[in-house]
Design a protein around this nucleic acid. Structure first.
Lengths: 187, 187
DNA sequence: ACCTGAACACCGTTCAAGT
DNA sequence: ACCTGAACACCGTTCAAGT
């Protein structure tokens, strides 16, 4: 009875956190809204479009204010922000992968990374490849974290994931610096 | 009428190449074998187990003989082999991601990378993180390639993907070398 | 603009029973 | 050991029709 697009996205984010990506179903989502499944197609052309909107909404909610820092530190901040966003929602990494593979949404983080690199003086190819590499690193790491914490649940292991993330990120940033003809280790 | 596990896996690989991962369905697979869907559950406990077996089969088929080379070159060979395997099958990257997220199969490439790193003298943490980073790089790159070539199809763009892959890989290997206290650029 | 009702063409999985 | 028959509990999507 009178929902808007934003209401549907809100409900979808809540449902995602409750039941996970696999159980995030058009029929189930309609149920939580007290509406018939077919009603959702008034707001979205299909499930793909809905998932793209959910991914962008989640990205937007986790956005932090920009700080003025050196380029390596900025890339680090963007990557940490992206990881935190993915970790903030059940199956967050899988959601981003799904949206990207459907070619709908979730493009902003990589664009920010590429911008930072170009601003730092990287050639176009290095900026493009570097941004992709960083994004894939973050996504892959968080995807592993979330599938592990899904299969564990009992023995608390806890914080070493963040440390591993930081170490690997430094590695990629070092490689990036080397490619740009700068000394490694500033990050 | 008398299929074995291996027959089912073979048919699944063929069907994957024909119709893609999304349409690789238990019912459809049963159809190509001239069998009822329920018959498949005699060979596999469920779809997840089947997909894991498919991933491992594909990995095994693409395996190349080991060459004796420097560690950076060896890592490069493993990564190139992994990319070629994924590219050799429709939705190859998505298949590996799916298997990994289900915690079934597709673990061998990362193990080989970690071994190569330990053999080269890397500390345990660097070997673990390095292998993960390399695997995620390869997977992410190929996943992008395959979703792009899925949405393109018309204007031939072609080879630059391989070049981008090589550049990004060198970047990661440089970062790895730096972390190990070695000069970058040997790869 | 937003929704219902009803249908279409599918899914994965289980389980008793057959040979 | 390998398979059938039949069912259960779901899917995404379409489309005419209602308010």
């Amino acid at each position: 009875m009178g929902h808007h697009r934003a209401d549907v996205v809100d409900a979808a984010v809540r449902l995602l956190d409750e039941v996970g990506l696999e159980a995030l179903t058009m029929r189930r989502l309609a149920g939580t809204l007290g509406v018939r499944p077919s009603a959702l197609y008034h707001h979205f052309s299909g499930k793909d479009a809905l998932l793209g909107a959910v991914a962008d909404e989640v990205l937007d909610r986790g956005r932090r204010p920009t700080e003025v820092v050196a380029w390596q530190a900025e890339l680090r901040l963007v990557c940490v922000e992206l990881r935190d966003i993915m970790l903030a929602h059940r199956d967050g990494a899988a959601l981003m992968a799904r949206a990207r593979s459907l070619g709908v949404g979730a493009a902003e983080p990589m664009n920010r990374m590429a911008s930072a690199l170009r601003w730092a003086g990287a050639e176009d190819e290095v900026a493009r490849v570097g941004a992709r590499t960083l994004f894939h690193y973050v996504y892959g790491h968080v995807a592993d974290e979330q599938t592990q914490q899904q299969s564990a649940g009992d023995g608390e292991v806890g914080p070493p994931a963040s440390l591993d993330f930081s170490v690997g990120l430094s590695m990629v940033l070092d490689g990036l610096a080397t490619r740009m003809g700068l000394p490694a280790g500033a990050g």
